[in-house]
Amino acid sequence: MEFANPEVLVDTAWLGEHLGDLDVRVIEVDEDTSAYLKGHIPGSLGWDWFEDLHAKPRRDYIDQNGLSELLARSGVGPATTVVLYGGNNNWFAAYAYWLLRYLGFDRVKLLNGGRKRWELDSRELTTETPKVEPTTYRIPGPVHLELRAMRDEVLSKLGAASFVDVRSPEEYRGEMMAPAHLPQESAMVPGHIPGAVNVPWSRAANEDGTFKTLDELKRLYDDAGLDADAPVIVAYCRIGERSAHTWFVLHELLGFPKVSNYDGSWTEYGSLVGVPVEW
């Protein structure tokens, strides 16, 4: 059986055969923003998830105009397909994928397994940055507000929507405040949103970063009691990047119709005054 939207994934072999295609723009988005400079897939560009995708000094993303300008600077035109990849099971690449879809850009795919699968396949990396001819591209479609959950919506849906906390069990139980490779600073209190089930994002990925099979993914979320027909399934983590990976699995691979990513996530919810929290 195939995923609900199999076209959203490409594998390393496909990408290896399409690196020179003029209508394919490969872009790396990594948690480690220096990774691109050390070596990247030939012909790819690097986006900095914070510098390029955030609207500083606010905690928010660039808007649709800002993304249109970024895509235009990256040589993306009306016929271009963007292929995103990154490290750590594609978690920041999935974050960028979700943001592009939220802001109305739909011709985007993820490299299954990301940088890790590419490197484990011993495929070529380069430090050469490609020359890109800017375009005048503008995203034609609307912003998909339904793909993003904001604080007030989250609070209004407590007890009425399905929440999935995709952090590690240790973070869900309030024992850790951040992933184990990051300094432990985060929200004001530990814990999770009442009623949220814990399905760590990484359970959707194999050790090499590729996604598990359709049957494995269905079983994973069935066992957690998530119902595809639930009114809304809101995924959250610490800052919304791991939950973007789970959003990708639920919405794009499994075809759940109503899934949003709460990118404020625990760093916002866990710092709100007076809201209910569970350990």
């Binding site: 490290g87 590690s168 184990a180 490779h181 359970r203």
Partner: peptide, 23 residues
Amino acid sequence: DAEGDFVGEVRADDEGRFVFHAI
């Protein structure tokens, strides 16, 4: 972790060293 759940991933440096912050 003890149940096999992935908690984090880093790249080892040029000498093969790595660091995690764990409980």
